[in-house]
């Protein structure tokens, strides 16, 4: 089954066209790299998939279920089973690391008795085990991004959207986070859509690369292989 199915999706902002009749099918378990110059519509495409932006026309289906048709949103964002890692993390500034994760666990119906164990597990996995009570303002860029990754997967999503997650990080941290993302993809068999304007650094892990220009798909290439 396809995880994502876009048919003729167009998005407009006033007179400007952000996406023009985009057709895209992404099979389950794929790691798709979405590349292109700034302003070409990469983030808009992610937001349409997440239900955060309404298309002007077209159909969006997720795992076989209709998510939106034209301007009609059929499935609210919170019902789509999506995790998203935003550029810069977008951590909630008033909640500490533990509460960030507990909020997600609460929303997705995880029994309260399991929260402590699950929070510890997630923080352990992103290598922030002693950071339970730390506030976002006290974290470095890399730490904040790893906490945001833990938050994105806390609800056990089937689809993970990454919006330029490596942007603000230095080279060493980029490498470490990429390995984490790859590990996640392999372990959970998640479908990953990874937006970046620097495709080279992530291309080793991607199964497919889609290139956008001026709101249109101009290239769609299957990757030769994935680095082990």
């Amino acid at each position: 089954m396809n995880a994502i199915e876009l048919n003729g999706v167009s998005v407009r902002a006033g007179e400007r066209t952000l996406l023009e009749s985009v057709d895209l099918s992404v099979p389950e378990g794929a790691h798709l790299l979405l590349v292109g110059p700034s302003g070409c519509g990469k983030t808009t495409l992610l937001r349409v998939i997440a239900g955060l932006a309404a298309p002007a026309a077209g159909r969006v289906s997720l795992f076989g279920a209709l998510a939106s048709e034209g301007q009609r949103v059929v499935m609210a964002p919170e019902k789509r089973g999506i995790g998203m890692l935003f550029q810069g993390g977008a951590l909630w500034p008033h909640l500490n690391a533990r509460k960030q994760l507990e909020f997600v666990l609460d929303c997705c119906g995880t029994p309260r008795a399991q929260w402590k164990e699950r929070v510890a597990e997630l923080l352990e996995w992103v290598e922030l085990p002693g950071y339970r009570e730390r506030m976002p303002a006290t974290l470095s860029g890399g730490e904040a991004q790893r906490l945001a990754l833990a938050r994105a997967i806390a609800s056990s999503p089937r689809l993970l959207l990454l919006d330029e997650p490596l942007g603000p990080l230095d080279e060493e941290l980029r490498g470490a986070l990429l390995v984490k993302l790859h590990e996640l993809h392999q372990r959970l068999r998640l479908t990953v859509i990874h937006v970046t304007h620097a495709p080279l650094e992530a291309s080793d892990y991607a199964t497919r690369t889609v290139r956008l220009r001026s709101g249109r798909i101009v290239d769609d290439t299957q990757a030769p292989g994935v680095r082990a």
């Binding site: 919170e78 999506i82 998203m84 935003f86 977008a90 909630w92 909020f103 929303c107 119906g109 609800s155």
Partner: peptide, 15 residues
């Protein structure tokens, strides 16, 4: 307020 703070909550499952 950064709208992404609300968007991330919606995606986490919050109505």
């Amino acid at each position: 307020l950064d709208p992404r703070l609300e968007e991330s909550a919606r995606l986490a499952g919050a109505g």
